[in-house]
Simulated scan of single mutants.
Amino acid sequence: MSLILKIVAVAAIFLGEAISIIAELIASRRFGKAGGDVTMLLPMFLLISFGGILLVFGYALGYMHLKNIGSLSQYRWELSGGGADTLSSPL
């Protein structure tokens, strides 16, 4: 059971980070095209808030089961770095 909770913690951190980044990208693109329409920022704010909740949940769950927040940060940076390399390599 402990292994499953560790996987859930890392997945929550990864999904929270991904949702926040995607919402920021969508908001910046739409805000630039719409000429500054503020009403479209509310859904993006809600997405970023949900991503933040997932991040806090993942870190709290991981800290309870790993007893070390440094290893969680290392997983997060490895996953984010791998994703960034994959996305930026075609560019």
Rank of each mutant, 00 (worst) to 15 (best):
W77L: 14
K67F: 02
L66H: 10
L41E: 09
M64E: 14
L79T: 08
A84I: 12
S88H: 11
G16K: 01
S80K: 09
F45V: 14
A60C: 08
L91R: 13
F45P: 01
N68L: 03
P43S: 05
I7N: 05
G70A: 08
L25E: 10
P43T: 06
E78T: 09
F45W: 14
L72V: 00
A18M: 14
S89M: 13
I13M: 14
L46Q: 10
K67V: 08
D37L: 05
L72F: 03
D37H: 08
M64Y: 08
V8Y: 01
N68I: 04
A11T: 14
I26C: 06
L66C: 04
L42Q: 13
A60F: 12
A11G: 09
I19A: 12
E17Y: 07
G36P: 02
S71R: 11
D85N: 06
T86M: 14
I4C: 07
M44F: 15
K67T: 09
K6R: 15
W77N: 12
F31T: 01
G83E: 01
I53P: 06
Y63R: 07
L54E: 03
G70W: 11
L3Q: 15
Y75A: 13
G32R: 15
L72D: 05
I7K: 05
A27C: 01
W77Q: 13
L5E: 02
L15S: 03
F31V: 08
I21Q: 01
L55N: 00
V56I: 15
